[in-house]
Structures are given as structure tokens and as C-alpha cells.
């Protein structure tokens, strides 16, 4: 019912029922039915469309074969990659991607001026031929015997394995107060602990012996032989009497 009413209202204002009919107000046409109407569109792809009784009718855009309605992951054969990356939890550090690379690589590149971005921003001088060094040039690399100065010795030398081990130790020990320094002096700590344990055992043995002695004494006190023998009356007995 509602639709019918709407339809009537629409029909009242439709071009057909307008005083000029379906005709354009400027161009006079002989075709009153509107079936011979054509739409001419210019531009890159000029076309003539027989639009019939419809205004502004254009050719529908060509439907492309590949749209977002398709599973593009499957279309491009990337399902394997998707499963690979979505399934497991990736480690955050760069070192887990290139585990064989020596040195510390997890620190930001800007810190030690080794960022890849800087290579793009300030490209190095290239184009020159790379030639092996002559003996004179190699003389520039003659070094003094001895270890490196302190400041250069530990650069890029923090081994990852050690760090992992330390972490494991920390985990298994379950000692919250242990720091890396404490780990370094781990040997000393152990001996101290052993000594402490020995001492504890010694103390415990002593206590046990004491308890045994006391028990023995008590037994002797409560035994009838002891009472009759000694002739002493315990305070308890006195009260009960």
C-alpha cells in the first residue's frame, strides 16, 4: 500500500507528467515516446548510448577480472607466507633474523651511525673502480703489537650466547636480588653458600643430639626406678597429692 502511494506521488512529478512531457525544455524533439533518446558522451572514450527513456545513462564501467571480492592471498599464491607469519610469534630482535651476524645489531642504527637510512640520505661516493691495495698502500696498515686500547676492545663484542646463558641462570635460580655483578662473582657466592650449608647441618646435628639427651633425661625422670631411687618428689606430684 505504501509503495503504491509513493509510486503515485512519484508519477505526479515524473517528466512524463510534466507540462512539457519528456522533452528537454531547450531542444525540441519529435519523438514523444523517448525511446530514441541517445546519450553522447565525449572525452577520452567518446560513445553514443541509446538511453531510451532514461536520462544520464552511461555505459557501465568494464568489470575487471581481479577485484577485492577475490581472495587475493590465494590468487597470488601467498597463503604459505601468510601461514608462516601469522601462525608463529616472531621474535622482535634483528639478531633473531640474522643470527650468524657477529656483534651487537639490536641497538638503533642511529646510535652508532650505521643506519641504512643514512646510506640513502647521504649516498657514498661510488663509481670508482675497486682495486687491490699496492704494497705501499698496505704499509699504511702496519700495526703496533699489543692489545687494542680499552675504548675499542669491547665494541661490538657482547656475545649473545653469554647473555642468554646469564638469563637462563637468572631464571633457574629464581633469585630476584641477583644482578649481573653478582653473576660475575658467582663462584665466590657458591662457596659461601656451601659453607653456610655445612654450618647449618652441623648446627642441626647438635640440636638433634641435645633433644635426644633431653628426651633421655625426661624418660629417666618419669621412670619409677628413677623416682624410687632418688627419693625426690617432682612438683607435679606434690600438687596432685
Amino acid at each position: 500500500m505504501m509503495m503504491g502511494d509513493q509510486f503515485r506521488k512519484v508519477e505526479q512529478y515524473s517528466p512524463k507528467s510534466s507540462p512539457r512531457g519528456a522533452r528537454s525544455p531547450v531542444v525540441s524533439r519529435q519523438d514523444s515516446t523517448g525511446t530514441l533518446k541517445t546519450t553522447i558522451s565525449l572525452g577520452k572514450n567518446p560513445s553514443i548510448v541509446h538511453s531510451g527513456p532514461f536520462y544520464l545513462m552511461k555505459e557501465p564501467p568494464e568489470g575487471s577480472e581481479l577485484t577485492g571480492a577475490k581472495n587475493l592471498m590465494a590468487y597470488y599464491g601467498l597463503e604459505h607466507s601468510y601461514c608462516k607469519f601469522s601462525g608463529k610469534k616472531l621474535k622482535e630482535q634483528l639478531s633473531s633474523f640474522v643470527p650468524n651476524l657477529p656483534g651487537v645489531i639490536d641497538t638503533p642504527g642511529i646510535a652508532d651511525n650505521s643506519s641504512l637510512r643514512s646510506v640513502i640520505d647521504k649516498p657514498p661516493i661510488c663509481g670508482k673502480e675497486i682495486l687491490p691495495l699496492t704494497s705501499i698502500q698496505l704499509a699504511g696498515f702496519r700495526l703496533h703489537p699489543g692489545p687494542l686500547p680499552e675504548q675499542y676492545r669491547y665494541v661490538n663484542q657482547a656475545p649473545q650466547k653469554k647473555h642468554k646463558k646469564a638469563h637462563k641462570k637468572h631464571k633457574y635460580k629464581g633469585n630476584d636480588s641477583t644482578s649481573l655483578e653478582a653473576m660475575a662473582s658467582d663462584g665466590g657466592g657458591d662457596t659461601h653458600e656451601k659453607k653456610h650449608k655445612k654450618q647449618k647441618r652441623h648446627d642441626e646435628d647438635k640440636e638433634r643430639k641435645k633433644r635426644k639427651k633431653e628426651k633421655k633425661k625426661k624418660k629417666q625422670k618419669h621412670s619409677p626406678e628413677h623416682n624410687s631411687g632418688s627419693g625426690n618428689i617432682t612438683p607435679n606430684l606434690q600438687f596432685s597429692a
Binding site: 607469519f85 601469522s86 638503533p108 642504527g109 641504512l116 640513502i120
Partner: peptide, 18 residues
Amino acid sequence: FDYIDQGRNPQLYTKDCI
């Protein structure tokens, strides 16, 4: 490159993109 410069695993970029 930004991921690498920050010391992050570049596979995370691939994961994010996918």
C-alpha cells in the same frame, strides 16, 4: 630499512603488510 635501523626483525614488516 626503518625496521632494520631500529634493530627490529624485518619479518615483522612482512607480517604487518600481510
